[in-house]
């Protein structure tokens, strides 16, 4: 039932008086806003492609000597490793490119740098996204070359054992890609990455000196396939999230 107050309240609330607005303020605002005019951007997929390509080539341009030394080291290690230690050499050396690239990435990524990058044409997250993809691609590339070399020099057959070793070597690459991504977003401190590398060295030592190594190699290959699959899915999910992360975070988007 409508009371007599309903109309009264609505009539009262409809009543409005606009406070005077300073026209000069509006002109000043328009002038100020010119500095914030959006730069017209290409389609996201095109930007993504451009950025990844750029990150990929810049790794080669800036670190070609390191890459060459690393590849030589890997090929030498693969040439002279004892047959019994093939798996541990492959597993322990496979994530080295990611360790080096990760160190470079986090070393130049202080909060000041992030502030600076936020003023660039691309967002910090877009740049980070492309760098991570490029680093993983480089790591997988180097790993593939080393494996092909292994097939050539050791006359290893493409058997289940070889497949097992390949999968085992992929596990740290994917794990550390994910760790690098999470650490770059959350901590942005090179000490965290150094701690990860240090613990990896002790993991390798543990695998050599304790039954842990045998235990790991004896785990069914399907477990590693599943583990890697889940890690890849999680990595892709985080990367997708990173790409979509907006520049502003005050709840207006």
């Amino acid at each position: 039932m409508k009371s007599k107050h309903d109309d009264e309240i609505k009539a009262l609330l409809m009543y409005k008086q606009i406070p005077p607005v300073d026209e000069e303020e509006k002109r000043e605002l328009v002038h100020k806003l010119k500095a914030y005019m959006p730069v017209s951007q290409a389609a996201p997929s095109k930007i993504m492609q451009q950025l990844i390509q750029k990150a990929f080539t810049s790794i080669y341009r800036d670190h070609k000597i390191e890459l060459f030394v690393l590849l030589t080291f890997l090929l030498l290690a693969y040439s002279f490793m004892p047959a019994s230690d093939v798996w541990i050499v492959i597993m322990s050396t496979s994530p080295i490119p990611i360790f080096l690239a990760g160190w470079h990435l986090l070393n130049g990524q202080s909060n000041d740098m992030v502030e600076l990058e936020l003023t660039y044409k691309y967002t910090f997250h877009q740049v980070l996204f492309s760098k991570i993809i490029a680093i993983v691609a480089w790591n997988l590339g180097i790993y593939s070359v080393a494996l092909l070399y292994l097939l050539g020099i050791k006359n290893m057959d493409i058997s289940l054992y070889f497949f097992h070793i390949v999968i085992l070597g992929l596990t740290p690459i994917i794990t550390f890609s994910l760790a690098l991504l999470l650490l770059s977003i959350k901590y942005r401190r090179e000490t965290s990455w150094t701690v990860v590398i240090l613990t990896w060295i002790f993991f390798v030592l543990l695998s050599l000196q304790t039954p842990l190594g045998t235990f790991l190699i004896e785990v069914n290959v399907l477990f590693y396939v599943l583990l890697n699959g889940s890690l890849v899915l999680f990595l892709l999910h985080r990367l997708q999230h990173l790409w979509r992360t907006e520049r502003l975070s005050d709840g207006i988007l």
Binding site: R189, T191, S192, V195, V196, L198, T199, F202, F203, L206, T210, P211, L212, T214, F215, L216
Partner: peptide, 20 residues
């Protein structure tokens, strides 16, 4: 960083003790 190290070391220590 201590907690990152603590987490990884705990996992590795536990695995090494229980592996065989």
């Amino acid at each position: 960083d201590i907690y990152i190290a603590l987490f990884i070391c705990t996992v590795l220590f536990w695995l090494a003790i229980n592996s065989n």
